[in-house]
């Protein structure tokens, strides 16, 4: 337990101290949130709520998808290439403890991101919601980020670090834009709406939009998101097995 806490703390420090974290997980989402909120008008209505809160959900989800899938995946790919993973295998720390510490560190950092985004929104745009809605939407964004960690593990299997970086960025940006996180799906052509509505990013953000709108949550989104997460993890495990036996 002691080494799990130490390992989680170290992983968290590493993540937060990375310049990419500050840029992609904090500055970029805050900037895009500000742009979308101001351009559309923070108090203008959208999807049963205002742009100020709607965009807050979208951009927090965007940040968390980037952190969980993109940065986690790229980091894993580098750790494999640099030999850090091999070095860890020489220590008595079990693979399970190592992996769960990484995930715990990520979830804590995700929580910090949510707090920063929500805090910024409340101060800069005077966003108002009942305490229950703040907590419920925040909790959902946190829990719903877990399947994207599975996607990060899968992207981390890519051996070539340059390819991993390119693909991870493409995947997380693509998921965010096509899933309707930047602009609502309703502004897209018909076929793109169909594709977008089937993406995990849309399922993820959609639940948070419904929560803040105080409307009915489409509970089908939850198994969809879970299914994607399970699929990512299974493919990653399959690849891992095949490599171990090679």
């Amino acid at each position: 337990m002691k080494s799990f806490v130490a390992q989680s703390r170290a992983e968290m420090l590493r993540l937060v101290r990375s310049p990419f974290f500050l840029l992609f997980s904090v500055l970029m989402p805050v900037a895009f949130y500000s742009i979308f909120a101001v351009l559309n008008g923070t108090s203008v209505e959208v999807g049963g709520t205002t742009w100020g809160t709607y965009s807050l959900m979208s951009m927090t989800a965007f940040s968390l998808i980037g952190t969980a899938a993109g940065q986690f995946g790229i980091r894993l790919s580098y750790e494999r290439k640099d030999g850090l993973i091999r070095l860890m295998k020489l220590t008595p720390l079990s693979t399970g403890a190592w992996a769960s510490a990484k995930i715990a560190a990520h979830l804590l950092v995700h929580l910090i991101i949510i707090a920063v985004m929500f805090g910024y929104s409340a101060i800069a745009f005077r966003t108002e919601m009942s305490a229950w809605l703040w907590v419920a939407s925040g909790l959902w964004l946190l829990v719903g980020s877990i399947p994207f960690l599975a996607l990060g593990i899968l992207l981390g299997m890519i051996r070539n670090t340059d390819a991993a970086t390119a693909i991870a960025n493409l995947v997380y940006m693509g998921l965010s834009v096509l899933g309707g996180l930047w602009m609502p799906l309703s502004t897209f052509p018909d076929w793109m709406q169909k594709v977008g509505s089937m993406l995990p990013s849309h399922a993820y953000a959609s639940v948070s939009w419904s929560i803040v709108a105080g409307g009915e949550v489409d509970w089908l989104d939850v198994p969809v998101l879970l299914g994607y997460g399970a699929m990512f993890l299974m493919i990653a495990l399959m690849l891992h097995r095949r490599r171990e036996n090679a």
């Binding site: 170290a10 590493r14 750790e79 640099d82 030999g83 850090l84 091999r86 070095l87 020489l90």
Partner: peptide, 12 residues
């Protein structure tokens, strides 16, 4: 053990 590569945990 010391392997041929000397990886470090970046950020630490």
């Amino acid at each position: 053990a010391m392997l041929q590569e000397s990886p470090v945990a970046d950020g630490l």
